[in-house]
Structures are given as C-alpha cells and as structure tokens.
Amino acid sequence: MNRFLKDKEHLVRMAALFAVGVVLFLILKAVLVPKGFGVYGHYRAGALADNRVRAPRFAGRSACIECHTDERDAWKGGKHAGVGCEACHGALAKHAEDPSASNAFKPDPKTICFTCHLTNAAKPRKFPQIDPKNHFDGGACNGCHSPHAPDKEPKK
C-alpha cells in the first residue's frame, strides 16, 4: 500500500464492497431480466402472445350461419338480423368447432325475450318494448313470433 493510500485503506475497501455490489447487481440483471423485454416497449414482448393464446368461447355469428342455413335465411331478412346468434344462444365456440361433441343451448322462448324487450324507462324510446302483463299474456312468445325472424305483424 503506498503512502498516499495508507490512511484511506478502509475507504478503498468500502469502495470495493460497493463495486462488488454493483457488479453483482448488473450480473443479476443480465440473468434475470426476461428475454424479449424491451423489444416493442418497456414490457415483455412475450406478453403480447400471452394475451393471444386464449381460445375464444364465442364463435361469432358468421360461424353459425355456415352450418345453420335455414336459420340464416330466416334471420338475415328479419328484425333480429342485427342480433347475433350467441346473444340468445350463449357462447357456443365449442359447439361450432364440433357439433357432435357439444350440444348447443336452446334458449327458453318464454323468457329469453325479456332480457331485451321488457319495458324500462331507461331504454331508448324507439326500441320495441312490451309489458308482459298486457301483451297477449299466457303463451310462449314463439307461439306468435318466430325468435329468428320476429315480425311486428305476427303470423297468427
């Protein structure tokens, strides 16, 4: 140890300790930072793929009408043409993929209609709403309206 450093030896050792700490930190950082971090921004590029892997549960209307051509023909021109099949039938991706393995859900025509058509003061006024108490009470709605192509002037 030269004379100049004699009285600073403890400081040199402390500095060395800090240096070791910094180096350790840098090594740790190099090893532990996930791969692909920072490719697109300050995040793991793999997170994009992670967000994509999930399998959809709703197949989408275009899938249904590929097979169900009868319903498609009725539905296309009707008042429910804007209503997706799964809005009433629920998520059916499994069924669409393999109809024999997974049965489709058939909504109850007595109740399903109310999710949308029940009167409510907050609904847009031009939306067709009914109060079941004074709308042809009794029979299921599909007795008069077809669920796939309802009409204001029903068949019966």
Partner: peptide, 23 residues
C-alpha cells in the same frame, strides 16, 4: 379489459360487441 386481444388478433370482434343486440 384487454379488448379481447385473443379475439381481435384472430379476426373476430370482441365478446361484448358480438353479443350486443343493438350495435
């Protein structure tokens, strides 16, 4: 909400839009 990222990147719309009856 991640805007159904797994759907929109496959060419589908989101689950909420798919099932919204009125658009």
């Amino acid at each position: 909400c991640n805007l159904c990222y797994h759907r929109i990147t496959k060419g589908l719309t989101t689950a909420c839009c798919e099932s919204c009856p009125t658009g």
